[in-house]
């Protein structure tokens, strides 16, 4: 089983560390696995080690210790083969402003060793998908920010990689363009079986498209998994039921709720309002327990823990521990 899982991994990082010359620890014993066709979100505050990790995966900077396996290759021994199969869209993507969109894409496509016809057909297909074909021969200096982001994603498509690393791909985009981008990233996974590593500060976006996420802090990734798994680890359950009750008299509502099976945590938010952490939707059980205890039940609302809540809770915990 372990062997099967390992063979499905397209990226395996083992105890990866990067210490810069001034003894700054950028990445500290990081281990990460990315499965084929998976979208993995890497989250964390600035300086947490996300970008350094990405650079090490591309062979752009050498790790101090640990091992990297990308599609069965070591980026330090075979950097070109790794870079041929991995597309990287940096957060601060720059283009040659005096060259047209087509020339910019053609320049990087030439490094792939493709012939003229193949390059042209890939570029035209990619820009058509990004709805940029009408501006393809214009100089990039005349492009808007959103168009440059689309051109950057077109470059990823031209490469047809097995793995795409997208660093803040929707940064500075309007809501409509953001939605388009996210749809496209989903389609990369679905239609082309591409594995994607997505670094972003937009937690709702990450939650909407990522299969798993990893939370970075001080060069480490101590928490990773699906949002539900992270919520269970942090809150004791993946869901939360918000219960609003009327006058309770001398009844202890928290105690009543605590007797219900499947409840892992209860928090009284304010007078008459309780947040109950559960692993499944047990609203009927809550309702009957409260009614049986003569407590007036006003409302019940169930929702899954959001990535935002997980993020806030994790970094509060980390901050408090520090």
């Amino acid at each position: 089983m372990a062997t099967e899982r390992q063979s499905a991994n397209v990226v395996t990082l083992r105890n990866l560390s990067k210490i810069y010359g001034n003894n700054t620890v950028a990445v500290d014993s990081l281990s990460l696995e990315l499965r084929k066709g998976e979208v993995f979100g890497i989250l964390g505050p600035n300086g947490a080690g996300k970008t350094t990790t990405i650079r090490m995966m591309l062979g752009l900077t050498e790790p101090t210790s640990g091992s990297i396996d990308i599609l069965g290759m070591d980026p330090l021994r075979t950097p070109l083969e790794v870079k041929r199969n991995v597309a990287y869209m940096p957060d601060d993507m720059g283009f040659y402003e005096d060259m047209s969109g087509y020339e910019n894409l053609d320049y990087t496509a030439r490094f792939l060793g493709l012939g003229y016809d193949e390059r042209r057909s890939r570029i035209l297909a990619a820009v058509s998908r990004m709805r940029l074909e009408h501006r393809l021969s214009d100089r990039v200096r005349t492009y808007s920010h959103g168009m440059k982001r689309r051109l950057a994603l077109a470059e990823v498509l031209v490469k047809r990689p097995a793995i795409a690393i997208l660093d803040e791909p929707t940064q500075g985009l309007d809501p409509h363009s953001t939605a388009e981008f996210l749809t496209l990233i989903r389609s990369l996974k679905k239609e082309e079986g591409m594995s994607v590593i997505l670094a972003s500060h937009h937690l709702d976006e990450v939650q909407s498209i990522c299969d798993r996420v990893g939370l970075f802090h001080a060069g480490r990734m101590d928490l990773s998994g699906t949002v539900d798994e992270l919520a269970t680890r942090l809150f004791g359950g993946k869901m939360e039921v918000v219960v609003e009750v009327g006058e309770t008299g001398n009844r202890d509502v928290a105690k009543i709720l605590g007797t219900i099976g499947g409840v892992s945590h209860i928090l009284q938010e304010k007078e008459g309002v309780y947040r109950v952490t559960v692993d499944s939707d047990i609203r009927p059980g809550i309702a009957s327990a409260l009614v049986d205890s003569d407590v007036a039940l006003y409302s019940m609302d169930v929702h899954r823990h959001t990535l935002d809540a997980v993020y806030q809770a994790y970094y509060k915990e980390v901050h408090d521990a520090a």
């Binding site: 591309l58 752009l60 950097p79 070109l80 083969e81 870079k83 041929r84 991995v86 597309a87 990287y88 940096p90 601060d92 993507m93 720059g94 283009f95 040659y96 402003e97 990087t108 490094f111 792939l112 060793g113 470059e155």
Partner: peptide, 15 residues
């Protein structure tokens, strides 16, 4: 300054 270096060096060429 134009932030093109990362883009170019992430292509299959040596630095």
């Amino acid at each position: 300054q134009n932030r093109t270096l990362k883009r170019v060096l992430s292509q299959p060429i040596h630095r």
